[in-house]
Design a protein around this nucleic acid. Structure first.
Length: 354
DNA sequence: GACCCGTGGCA
DNA sequence: TTGCCAAGGGT
């Protein structure tokens, strides 16, 4: 048998040998030699978008316990998906997850497409996820590029072009080193390497299978990659939330519009949030005309592109009070089970004196 | 390409 | 404390 001396193949061989010794054991990952379940691979990849392995763990376990296959998920209501997703963030992922399950179950016979082109058409599945599922679940040779891989490759090749302009070049580099054999393991190996060795700060280069051929390492500049354009500072927005309770202990909540920030989630009825919020006229944003009392303190919360400070107002409604449009009454004890995003849980905690 | 979209952990 | 970062996608 001829030895393959192609340098790209040597990258893959070195990495796969490292992976066979050091692979992480993760709840969604098949054991060596075991076939991956496309449903679990897809579900985990959606959850892992911009979200840490540690955070995803319990959510993944809860989801597969409740919805063991794509048919079960497709048969559920999107509201139940949102409730189970609450706290995980990026809520459009949850709505797309449900939409995708319906497409796969109802128009694709319950089977996920087995190639990148087909996967890419599904809601919530972009270039990364399509490639990851194709490679990991179906053994397709696909260039899987996430944030870990971007870091590994920009260091390996000392790519000076900043992100996101460097993305096409990085994809081409990954394409060149992805092997025909074990492409799914190769992709997971690249991500494990980025997560455990080729870390953003203080990478453990001495343990890296690429050390000898890493351009940035040879120059001693590995920590400076990837190059990135500086980020804009997040502005501070202000707003008000309105905590209305009845004598029997029920509280008023509202469903947010399906699109936009916290789309489709439940909220404690709130004002708009803006940089020039008029605190003096805050109660003008309330869902009901009430005698409001401003509660001491303030809820602080960080979103992707702004900081938020919310003032909370409370009022007592009569037992007979009607819920305004989009609003409904829920038992205080049932609030935890609602599709309440974290910022709304903070508001509820302040209102309840916790 | 630029902007929108959550949250928690870490230095 | 503040900023950075995490298995990105949609528009």
């Amino acid at each position: 048998m001829l030895a393959n001396t192609d340098p790209e193949v040597k990258h893959a061989d070195a990495l796969l040998a490292w992976y066979d010794r050091h692979r992480r054991r993760l709840p969604w990952r098949a054991l060596p030699g075991e076939a991956a379940d496309p449903y679990r691979v897809w579900l985990s990849e959606i959850m892992l978008q911009q979200t840490t392995v540690k955070t995803v763990g319990p959510y993944f376990e809860a989801f597969v316990a409740r919805w063991p296959d794509v048919g079960a998920m497709a048969a559920s209501d999107v509201e139940d998906i949102l409730k189970a997703w609450a706290g995980l963030g990026y809520y459009s992922r949850a709505r797309n997850l449900h939409a995708c399950a319906r497409v796969v179950s109802e128009t694709l016979g319950g089977r996920f497409p087995d190639d990148v082109e087909g996967l890419r058409k599904l809601p919530g599945v972009g270039a990364y996820t399509a490639a990851a599922v194709a490679a990991i679940a179906f053994g397709r040779r696909a260039a899987v590029v996430d944030g870990n891989v971007e870091r590994v490759v920009t260091r390996l090749e000392a790519i000076e072009t900043p992100l996101p302009q460097a993305k096409p070049l990085i994809a081409a580099c990954v394409e060149a080193i992805t092997p025909e054999s074990r492409p799914g393991d190769f992709a997971q190996a690249m991500m494990d390497l980025g997560a455990t060795i080729c870390t953003p700060k203080r990478p453990a280069c001495a343990l890296c299978p690429f050390m000898a051929r890493c351009s940035a390492r040879q120059a001693g500049t590995q920590e400076t990659f990837p190059r990135k354009a500086p980020k804009a500072r997040r502005p501070l927005r202000r707003g008000a939330a309105f905590w209305v309770t009845r004598p029997d202990g029920w509280v008023l909540v509202r469903k947010r519009p399906d699109k936009g920030l916290l789309g489709g989630m439940t909220e404690i009825p709130s004002s708009v949030w803006s940089e020039d919020f008029d605190a003096a006229g805050a109660v003008g944003h309330a869902p009901l005309k009430m005698k409001w009392r401003r509660l001491p303190g303030e809820v602080q919360h960080g979103f992707t592109h702004f900081e938020l400070a919310v003032t909370v107002y409370a009022a007592d409604a009569p037992l007979t009070a009607k819920a305004p449009p989009d609003c409904r009454w829920v038992r205080l004890a049932d609030l935890d089970g609602e599709a309440l995003p974290t910022v709304m849980r903070k508001i509820a905690a302040l209102a309840r004196g916790q």
